[in-house]
Write a protein that binds this DNA or RNA. Structure first.
Lengths: 198, 198, 198, 198
DNA sequence: ATCTAAGCGAGACGGTACGTCGCGTCTTTGC
DNA sequence: GCAAAGACGCGACGTACCGTCTCGCTTAGAT
């Protein structure tokens, strides 16, 4: 399958793999994604360049693995107190804090940028990070719909995007502040719509 | 005030400026943003590298100027037929076509990516391209609110983001297709909300 | 005769000409010949680049004019006390001091180097600086020959070169020290030859 | 001790080294020293610029190595037929031919010029090319002195300079022709001196 | 005394080369 | 046979000067 005699992953050095992840995450925080280099990672990790090239196709892929190696543990479902508005606000407020934290921002923004320009990479990025995030909202909305909290015909996937995209967009393009007030208003307006009630 | 003795813009060569814009737009379409180089632009434009460095701080800034030099003419208001849903759908469908056009995509995506990673650049990008786009939606929604088509207390700026962000996000991160059906559903769901109607 | 409509030298700015000479001599002393630039001279002299290009073909030509503008006043004949050996030693000892003086060295070495590599320039350099120097020695030796101090058939031009070249060579290529002892020995050996006396 | 982590010379590519020498010598003959560029050498040699910068500090140093890599094999002693004048004339006549040969001239003149302006480089140039040349004359003169052909107290080093410097000077500064007649007269006058014989 | 064309300071321009950085490949030497 | 180390060919970086070319401006010399 591999076109170049694939490396034997059973012989792979776990020590080097960890060192590369640590170096990549540290460096992206210090110098930013554009000035992050393979040589820099290798040097900081005390590793030969070839060891990186052997296992990853690009610096973005290294960073993606480094980021998800730490993040893969997390995941689950949104809380369900029976009040979908309250639950969404609670989780989005926590997400506000997360995206305002520099340590989280740097590698995540780097990945988003890399994904936006590199179509190949974006497939992995979307599948491993974005889709799971959308899914937990979709699931929670579906539960709410079954419970009669939402209209019967509601497109829950689209609903999830209506909640997450304005948030992501503000953060990524810096078109606005990420505050509790913003997410509260967003949840309310998404749920009630803009139309006047009959 | 200037840290390097600013060049005299009255002596500037308009011919070179245009040639640089043309070359930058052509090249970003041909090779993509990452492989776009200052040397490439200079060579294609028949211009010395220094002429680019004299007037712009980065290739992203060149591209931004090139893109807006062409785009600055456009701008206006959304149509107003009295039916806000129909008007929004009409315009968003046109925007679907625009964002599916490779000639428009390449430089715009390049700018979005550059803006996402470079905070300085993003200020200009947001102010010159994104904000004006949001504003025309905000204005149309305001008109609709005054006309009683929307609830009295509606946050029209937030409404505009709810319409545009899911669209932008799908396009930028490739999380979904941009279709007429998608924008139609988006408009309907934004206007009506997810809640069941009393 | 001129292929480009020669400049009108009657309108020439004497003030600029002096400023260029001063700047060129000062700069060659400060940064050396290789790092001497036309732009640097123009800037230091408070002069436009074109003013230099209008009147000189190269930085070497500027330097040559600058150097000879100061040096043209000097010139004359060697002393004649009747003792040719003593006269030569006296003058060469003075020349040792001159060539060990950094203020004289820098531009003179620069000119020698430029002359060595540029055949066109070397013609002027030789004619204006080297030949006159050789001539005064040739003249003094001729007088000595007429006076019977030298053998009747002596080639006085070659004699002058035998005196000056070992001196110049040591200085230019740094193959040896320039000392009084050296020039004394040189004069003696040139006059007496290496052969044992019959 | 090294200020930049010196390269590992055991890993050095001999193929590249030779290609660089060949390219440098060919180019200096074709375009001259001033128009000789590192980029030109690298390109002609099919080598990266960095490979040159890794091993040499300047184009002059490259040329010096290139020149001596070929020339290091040669070297020896002057012929000794018992007639010092004849021997000197024979060798100097051969040297006349050598210095009138363009293929030899171009790189040698380039080195002389570079050595004249760069004190650091001149140390190597003198030690590797000039001094050995002077030494063979010094040695031959010493032999002649022991054989009684020269005066007992003769300074043989100075004698060698008296033979070589007028020659070098004429060539380098173009103050005169290099002919057999010139070197014959030079040898005679150096050996006999200018004084009339008692 | 006025006009007009040249010299002038200034510096933008199309270029070439600089010396550096990082790429991705390849090779050498342990382990 | 993977890994650390790093030399290699390559391409782009951003800078420094080159020599040419306008731009006003000032400043004679001819009218």
């Amino acid at each position: 399958m591999a076109n170049k005699t694939a490396p034997d992953s059973s012989r792979r050095s776990e020590r080097s793999r960890r060192a590369i992840f640590d170096a990549a995450l540290a460096l992206v925080g210090e110098v930013g994604y554009d000035k992050l280099t393979i040589e820099g990672i290798a040097s900081r990790a005390g590793v030969g360049k070839q060891t990186i090239y052997r296992w990853w196709p690009s610096k973005a892929a290294v960073l993606l693995d480094a980021f998800t190696a730490d993040a893969d543990t997390y995941r689950g479902a949104l809380p369900d107190t029976g009040d979908v508005a309250a639950d969404l606000k609670a989780v989005l407020r926590a997400t506000v804090d997360e995206f305002n934290d520099p340590a989280f921002q740097a590698p995540y923004r780097a990945l988003a940028v890399a994904g936006a320009s590199d179509e190949e990479l974006s497939r992995t990025f979307v599948a491993r990070l974005l889709e799971p995030g959308i899914d937990v909202y979709t699931d929670r909305l579906r539960v709410a719909r079954e419970a009669g909290e939402l209209a019967a015909g509601t497109d829950v996937r689209l609903g999830a995007e209506m909640l997450l995209s304005p948030f992501s967009q503000r953060w990524l393009m810096r078109t606005g502040e990420l505050t509790y007030a913003f997410v509260d208003a967003l949840v309310d307006q998404v749920l009630h719509g803009l139309r006047p009630r009959g």
